[in-house]
Design a protein around this nucleic acid. Structure first.
Lengths: 251, 251
DNA sequence: ATGACGCTTTGACATGAATCATGGCGCCGA
DNA sequence: TCGGCGCCATGATTCATGTCAAAGCGTCAT
């Protein structure tokens, strides 16, 4: 299934699918659209909007781009999970967000990417040339307004995360994290008490400012406290939303 | 000078100055304007723009608004320093930013304020009713674009801060902090090596995810390492930008 | 079926920063 | 000029989390 690793010729980090001219624009049936930057694009404009972008597929563990790369594209994720991260010279890294279906990537860049983006699972996305996307926005204030709204929401989330990283204990961090994932699941019409973890303990650690060992121990702690159960390592069942909320402090 | 504290009637957290009709709009001579949200407002519109806002003065230690208040206004700071913060139920708090001349307050709010804002020094600001400001933006995409740019910059800064809070040591945090203040001073045409600290050690701690004691000790450490000198508790002289950068890791 | 590999869990120990406690310094008002 | 108060510096000690190490478990390719 996966290509022979290490061969730069045979390996494709990202494949581009072409759209058949004449067939209806896939946007009209895109499940991610309602959550996405493209939500305010009217039906009449969809063809033009769609034509700006390429559909890409990225394998798990591949990077969409690296921190410091020239910022050439913006993305709208239609399937899979991506993490954004920043690193220090010695390898310590901070994951600044886990993104999935409907999420936009491309805010906060200047000329170069302020963070790297890596697929944690196989990912599908719409990729837009940054410049064309900006030109489109300049002509369509609705979309620009939507992006401002997205940026504003991101900023609020970033501030919550600062509170978490600066002032919360390990169990508060993990409890907050699980509750956020749960809220997110609810927003997508999934059950609140069953939380999938597409990322490893190490990645959770890099997001919460902890080590993977502390994440693991804390997970056990929450389990022993009766707040959660582990169906398997990647599937958390929230047993008591209340105790989890109490443990989390807030958010 | 300061009003008798504790009396809700005699005390004014914020005073509103009225503008004389007919006199030229103060915006044209406002030193903060070039850095501000109002930079793209054309001369011809300044009167209208100005008329939307009230000039306010806030004493040191007073709050512009509290976390959870209904979000009624947005602000543009014209003088002084403000800190934004979020708190946990038990009083732990995280300062998410120090703002000054030219900075905009009002991003990231929903119906209620996502954070509190407190004046660290006497502050002057332009205060706009949130709704009117949004209406103005809807009619003036330039201003909306500028706000998106501001939000984007804020987001990048927030991500830097997440890296700092999640992964940096105490001395890396403090070194990064001092370098940022220095960069900021440079952007305003002030000398790079002389950094004013309008906030207390405790506030620095609440910003860097440390205690005031650790901030104090670390300041001593940086001094003994020959990276900085303290003219007095509120004035840091950067002796060696290089060693400070080495200590900081990045940013 | 089996072995290998990657991820997770758990244990033992180390350590950076927090906490608790004390004294010093500087500023402001009487 | 003096006293008081808030902020800061520093020391002693504790503690949460990091680090190092080893073993368990699941998955996947052979």
């Amino acid at each position: 299934m996966s290509p022979p690793s290490g061969s730069p010729i045979a390996t494709r980090a990202c494949t581009v699918a072409r759209h058949m001219a004449g067939s209806p624009v896939p946007c009209s049936t895109c499940a991610a659209r309602q959550f996405s930057i493209c939500a305010p694009v009217p039906e009449s404009e969809l063809t033009e909007f769609f034509a700006m972008s390429a559909r890409i597929r990225v394998e798990a563990r591949r990077h969409l781009f690296n921190e410091g790369d020239p910022a050439q594209h913006v993305f709208n994720i239609t399937a899979g999970t991506v993490c954004l991260s920043k690193a220090l010279a010695d390898g310590r890294r901070q994951i600044t967000g886990f993104l999935s279906e409907g999420d936009f990537i491309g805010l906060a860049h200047g000329d170069s990417c302020a963070y790297g983006a890596e697929a944690l699972t196989p990912v599908e996305a719409c990729r837009f040339p940054r410049e064309r996307f900006e030109q489109y926005m300049a002509k369509h204030p609705d979309v620009e307004r939507r992006l401002l709204q997205i940026a504003s929401t991101e900023l609020a989330a970033a501030q919550d995360q600062m509170l978490l990283l600066g002032r919360k204990t390990a169990s508060e961090r993990l409890a907050s994290f699980l509750l956020r994932l749960s809220d997110r699941a609810v927003a997508r019409g999934e059950p609140a008490n069953l939380v999938a973890l597409p990322m490893t303990r190490s990645e959770i650690g890099d997001y919460l400012g902890l080590t993977l060992e502390t994440v693991s121990r804390t997970m056990t702690q929450l389990r022993k406290a009766g707040a959660i159960d582990l169906d398997n390592v990647n599937m958390v069942r929230i047993v008591s939303q209340d105790s989890l909320r109490r443990l989390a402090g807030t958010v």
